[in-house]
Amino acid sequence: MKSITAVTFLALCLTVAVTASSKSYYGKTKPANLTDEKVTRVRFYLHDILSGQNPSAVRIAHANLTGRADSPVGFGSLFAIDDPLTVGPEKDSKEIGNGRGMYVSGSKDINKFTIVMYADLAFTEGKFNGSSISVFSRNPVAEEAGEREIAIVGGRGKFRMARGFVKIKTHQIDMKTGDAVLRYDATVYHY
């Protein structure tokens, strides 16, 4: 009887010890080795096509009160995107990835047209195949004469823990359809 009581007591102590240690939601904090940071610059073109039978951007919601039905990108419109990323601006240029995410038209004034976008810019070819950079930023589209800048807020694969910025320049835009080809020059800091 004493041996059963002793075994039961030891089992109970072990259970309490294991339960106490597994209740923690965090691990040991230790200094990170951040001396291996790299900077990579990549240039590609994003094709955002709203028109035709096979668009790469589609409006999934819009506010009834703020835009005309014939406006391709009225204020409050929300778009889902699956835009091709290519080496050059031409339609038949080599595809190297895709930009998937969404953007919302965030300005009432068409002369100051701005979108707020989230996109995962994934590479499916070449050196960065399987990697991506994530952007989440305000994009002042109406500043098409010059470059505008959006923030890189993360990444995966070779761009793990990415931060940085993308300079965007409008290569071509059709104001009637909203179709655009944009040059992206990304400066990516990563490990």
Rank of each mutant, 00 (worst) to 15 (best):
F79K: 04
A122D: 03
S71A: 15
S71L: 15
F75D: 04
A69L: 12
E90R: 09
V87K: 12
G126Q: 08
G99T: 00
K94H: 14
L121N: 03
F128P: 02
P72S: 09
K108I: 13
S93N: 05
D92C: 11
R68P: 13
K108N: 10
S107T: 14
R100N: 09
K91L: 11
S71F: 14
M117Y: 04
E95P: 02
E95V: 00
S131I: 10
I96P: 00
A142E: 12
F79T: 04
I110L: 14
F128D: 07
K112Q: 13
G97M: 02
A80I: 12
G76F: 01
E95L: 01
D109I: 09
T114N: 01
A142K: 11
G130W: 03
L78D: 05
N98E: 11
P89W: 06
V141M: 05
S71H: 15
N111L: 12
E125Q: 15
N129S: 09
K91A: 14
K91G: 14
S131G: 02
F113Q: 08
G88V: 10
A142Y: 13
D82G: 12
G130C: 05
L121A: 04
E95Y: 00
G101E: 00
G99C: 03
T86D: 02
D92R: 08
V116F: 02
L78Y: 07
L85M: 14
R100F: 01
A119H: 06
G76S: 02
I81L: 06
G99S: 06
R138W: 14
G88C: 09
S132F: 08
I96C: 03
V87T: 11
T86M: 05
T114P: 10
G106H: 07
I110E: 15
A122G: 09
E95H: 03
F123Y: 06
R138M: 15
K94C: 12
A122C: 08
T66W: 08
M102G: 13
L85S: 11
K127P: 02
N111H: 13
S77E: 04
G74S: 12
V104E: 00
Y118G: 14
V73D: 11
T114S: 01
F128Q: 09
A69R: 12
F79W: 02
V87D: 05
S93W: 01
G74T: 13
L121F: 05
A142C: 11
P84G: 05
E125S: 13
E90W: 04
L121K: 04
L78S: 10
